[in-house]
């Protein structure tokens, strides 16, 4: 339990770093780190397959997308960048305090969560569940990937020309 708590603290710290750091590339790195830590947490909780997917897709693919967007949109107009850097701290310095405060406050709250619940019989292997009970979601995945392909074709169109 202690190790898991430590991991979760690290997870939140990584996410905090991703949102606080100035350079976008470092923020992307922070996000990848968050993803990686999350997949470790998932692994520790027993969600092995989901952890693998999270690690490869989120820490990998999404970082690639973010890095390419960052590089395609550089250089920002210099004035904008300087001004942004100057004002950033005003908007972000309360965040660590808020998080700390919320964390402490929530750890003192004791909500009676001893709800007794009934479980439907047996929970099989994740692959069985995915392929034999959630086909509709798989179809949804294919569909949304199709939509994503159209998104790339339409939104990134000018690149081709």
């Amino acid at each position: 339990m202690i190790w898991l708590t430590l991991l979760l603290v690290l997870l939140v710290l990584a996410a905090l770093w991703a949102s606080m750091t100035t350079a976008l590339l470092r923020a992307t790195l922070g996000l990848a780190l968050t993803s990686a830590l999350l997949s470790v947490v998932m692994f520790a909780l027993g969600a092995t397959l989901a952890a693998v997917v999270e690690l490869s897709v989120c820490a990998g693919l999404i970082s690639v997308v973010l890095v390419s967007v960052t590089s395609l949109t550089q250089p920002r107009s210099l004035k904008e960048a300087v001004e942004a850097r100057k004002n950033r701290l005003h908007r972000f310095w309360p965040l660590p305090l808020v998080l700390l405060g919320a964390g402490v406050a929530l750890s003192f709250v004791r909500v009676p969560v001893d709800i007794i619940l009934r479980l439907p019989a047996g929970d099989g292997d994740v692959r069985t569940v995915l392929w034999s009970m959630r086909q509709l979601d798989l179809f949804g995945q294919i569909l949304i990937l199709l939509a994503g392909v159209f998104g790339v074709l339409v939104l990134f169109r000018k690149e081709a020309k």
Binding site: D137, G140, I144
Partner: peptide, 29 residues
């Protein structure tokens, strides 16, 4: 059509998201 026929909250979410993504692209297309 998925939204019209599902009986499950998560599938409902999936199809809502499909519709939404298609619409994001349509607005900016």
């Amino acid at each position: 059509n998925g939204i019209a026929m599902v009986r499950d909250l998560f599938s409902l979410y999936v199809f809502v998201e499909v519709t939404a993504v298609a619409t994001f692209i349509l607005i900016t297309a």
